[in-house]
Design a protein around this nucleic acid. Structure first.
Length: 416
RNA sequence: GGUGGGGUGACCGAGUGGCUAAUGGUAGCAGACUGUAAAUCUGCCGGGCUCUGCCCUACGUAGGUUCGAAUCCUACCCCCACCA
């Protein structure tokens, strides 16, 4: 446990730490948690930071708890948000929670002595009575204290509902609950969670007379200034049904030179020595993008497994080297759209096909893209707006590879 | 409850009766250059079509005035500030 803090610090995880944390971590193994909101049925790459934090905790002998916010999700965390959030139905939250839990189960270890635990705060928050909450939690906080928090202060202009105002208390209650029931003494989170975490520490101190600790991670950004984890298709999800392993691999491969070292430290378990080595290679020959390749391979393997990572590497090599390749293997890892054999009898307009493949959001966009030489079929740029896709375009009898720009691919697969 | 200000496309933000699918900026997409990078330059950037043009839908909501409205009128909803 001794060097958890230094590991995290060396790898760029630490934005802020409560003063007592270091001494406590040196004293022995600890139980720590991080929360995950069930706002969608899949986590996205942004969630990898706290997940890696928990994983490092586990590797240093601690017991990680991944807390799914099935209860707090009903309220909505104002932290880092400029506007009130839409309320999801309980059914949606529960469905999302199931998806998130399945992913967490793959990313943490459950077969070791200090096995990870998964909890859902719906289990205690939904049954918590209002009077009980006001007496046992609300009584310990002054409104003055709550108004000091950034999450509230920054919303005083635009407005914040009582519901979101109260959020920090529900999260504080979670920390207290986990402390009480599982001896959890540490909470990890993004830097926007600082206020919520310290509120929890405060509550534990008041009710239990015990000292709890917090570590927050820096806000993820990219050197280009874009939001981390977003692409033109929206978020980069961990769910392969939403973001194929190939797309996932490509996301990391396209990392900015200025970000790649930081990402290697944050999103892989590679020893710092290995990272320094690959960075040296990268600096010597930037065009090789050795660091990006390693990053993409490693993160894809962590999230989707070794096999999928290998396929993504192979598919990327095939697609970007040009020439004929093993289409069946490509179809397996990249977004693939099924066609029935009959569809091609008369040929399909290319514009329709691009929309179906998700490469264009409307026929008009597809048409404009073709006019701008932005699309290709089987590696050949297509400039004819009226082009039709026919059986003659099939490769290996059943595949057609569509490409948008240089980087975006989709495979049409004819059913047999 | 009162007074004042405000609600425009993904976001910011112009626009006060026709030249407005709506200036500009950001973000995004494509092309050129490159290293599947950055920066830069160029084009695109509500939807559909039988596409040098045509048709829908759109400026908080619902009506109205007008040949014509994001722009004027009425009611309503929501947000903000100050006052009570």
């Amino acid at each position: 446990m001794t060097d958890l803090i230094s590991t995290l610090a060396d790898r760029g995880f630490i934005q802020d730490v409560t003063p007592s944390a270091e001494a406590r971590l040196k004293a022995g193994p600890i139980v720590g948690y991080a929360g995950f909101d069930p706002t969608a049925d899949s986590l996205h790459v942004g969630s990898l930071v706290p997940i890696m934090g928990l994983a490092w905790l586990q590797r240093h002998g601690g017991t990680p708890i991944a807390l799914i916010g099935g209860g707090t999700g009903m309220v909505g965390d104002p932290s880092g948000k400029r506007q009130e959030r839409p309320i999801l139905s309980v059914e949606e939250i529960d469905a999302n929670a199931r998806g998130v839990e399945a992913q967490l189960r793959r990313l943490l270890r459950f077969d070791v002595a200090n096995a990870a635990r998964i909890r859902n705060n719906a289990d205690w928050l939904r049954t918590l009575g209002l009077m009980e909450f006001l007496r046992d939690v609300g009584k310990h906080f002054t409104v003055n204290y709550m108004l000091q928090k950034d999450s509230v202060k920054s919303r005083m202009e635009t407005g914040i509902s009582y519901t979101e105002f109260s959020y920090m208390l529900t999260q504080a209650h979670d920390f207290w609950h986990l402390h009480r029931t599982e001896h959890c003494e540490l909470q990890l989170g993004g830097s926007d969670q600082w206020g919520n975490i310290t509120a929890g520490i405060e509550l534990i101190s008041r009710r239990e007379g015990a000292q709890a600790h917090g570590i927050v991670f820096p806000l993820m950004t990219t050197a280009g200034g874009a939001k981390f984890g977003k692409s033109e298709d929206g978020n980069i999800w961990l769910d392969p049904a939403r973001t194929s392993p190939y797309q996932f691999y490509q996301f990391w491969l396209n990392s900015d030179d200025r970000d790649v070292e930081r990402f290697l430290k944050l999103f892989t378990f590679l020893p710092l020595g290995d990272i320094a080595e690959v960075m040296a290679a990268q600096t010597a020959d930037p065009a090789s993008r050795a660091a990006q390749r390693l990053l993409a391979r490693e993160v894809t393997a962590v999230v989707h497994g070794e096999d999928e990572a290998d396929k993504a590497v192979a598919a990327s090599a095939a697609v970007f080297s040009g020439g004929e390749s093993d289409y069946a293997a490509l179809a397996d890892t990249m977004p693939s759209v099924p066609l029935s054999a009959g569809d091609l009898d008369d040929g399909l307009p290319l514009t329709d096909v691009l929309v179906r493949a998700g490469l264009a959001s409307s026929k008009g966009e597809a048409r404009r893209g073709i006019e701008g030489k932005g699309f290709s079929v089987n590696g050949v740029v297509e400039a004819d707006v009226n082009r039709r896709v026919t059986a003659a375009d099939l490769r290996q009898g059943r595949y057609i590879l569509l490409r948008k720009g240089k980087k975006h691919h989709a495979m049409l697969t004819v059913d047999r």
